[in-house]
Design a protein around this nucleic acid. Structure first.
Lengths: 192, 192
DNA sequence: AGTAAGTCAAACAGATGTGTTCGAGTTGTG
DNA sequence: CACAACTCGAACACATCTGTTTGACTTACT
């Protein structure tokens, strides 16, 4: 097991099921146990340990999984136009994925060395970061607040919206519109 | 122990230290153990159990503590003027307290019956809720998004700012200004 | 000063989680 | 078919957390 060489088909399939379950469980509950994840994957706990040597390794693999999914979706988007429109497209097409990724990363923060998480997160986050900085440079987004803060606001509003949806306090269909309207307004200086 | 009658001075003092430590620990880590809280309070674990029959009871007491602190501060504010100015005052004077209360409530959510938390939280939250609804009614805040969502946004931005400060990614002194500027802009329809 | 109230460390029981081993059963693949 | 790869439940050791008891110690209050 855990040999680089070709593994049996069902084994590869199980690894896939486990990673999917891990992402789902960890984005719902950062403290999800290994048993819980194994059960959600329809797999025995021992089988899981056959593929991942420790919970920590599993969490890291789940992070890489959700990040690569994110890369795939974000890579298919055209974010080169008007920053406002680009941000709108970004939010409407993948807010749920971004929120899920954010939740898994937060879960990872509790069981992985803190530097490791930011290291993994750095590259994919760059896309959003660049978009916001470009919007500032083009004078479309406000510059009286630092880009880091604007990124953080987007991050936390997305995460919050996901929590609200999970708690039944927000209709999933309303979320992208609400988020987009809120963020675009927040990124423009208020007319006091 | 746990007699309604007059208790010794040092006992009351210890209860106070324990509650303070519980609020501090739980707002930093929702899963803080009883030992951790006892140690932070400078008190033995057994002593803590002498005052609170269970972890659950301790968490509930910590929630009541932070909420009553919040009531005290919010009660001393004049929020009757221009909703924008009132919200500005509210954020600048007590964003940290609000964020801490929010974190403790989130911690409580993991160990208390879900209904109980919202029940405890309901009355103090009403103040902020009312302010936002008044702002909408007076035409100062946008009405194309529901008040519940605006409240939720404030909530999550506050929480996020507290996390950023704790992570060293945001200067504590900058936070109130950033939050206030962001929220006021978000509460106004963007000039697309 | 005397007494009750309070504190505390050590040790216990029980629950839960992680990680491992064993042995038997199952299934993909050559 | 045959064998290796894989799966899986049961049980283990180890750690951590909750909650309790015991017994000795200290301290507030009258």
């Amino acid at each position: 097991m855990s040999h680089s060489g070709a593994r049996r088909a069902d084994a590869r399939q199980n690894v896939d099921k486990i990673l999917g379950a891990a992402v789902a469980c960890l984005s719902r509950n950062a403290d999800a146990s290994v048993s819980e994840i194994a059960q959600a994957a329809g797999v025995g706990r021992v089988t899981l340990y056959g593929h991942f040597p420790s919970r920590e390794a599993l969490v890291e693999a789940a992070v890489m999984r959700v990040l690569s999914e994110g890369e795939k979706v974000l890579g298919g988007l055209d974010l080169t136009g008007d920053p406002r429109e680009a941000l709108n497209v970004l939010i409407r097409s993948s807010w749920l994925l971004l929120a899920q990724a954010s939740a898994v990363l937060e879960a990872a923060l509790a069981s992985l060395p803190p530097g490791r998480v930011q290291e993994l997160h750095a590259k994919p986050a760059q896309r959003v970061d660049d978009l916001i900085r470009r919007g500032q440079a083009e004078g479309v987004f406000r510059t009286d607040l630092p880009a880091d803060w604007l990124v953080s606001v987007l991050h936390h509003v997305l995460h919050g919206a996901a929590l609200d949806v999970a708690a039944g306090q927000l209709d999933r269909a309303d979320a992208p519109h609400f988020i987009s309207e809120t963020i675009l307004a927040a990124y423009t200086r208020s007319g006091t």
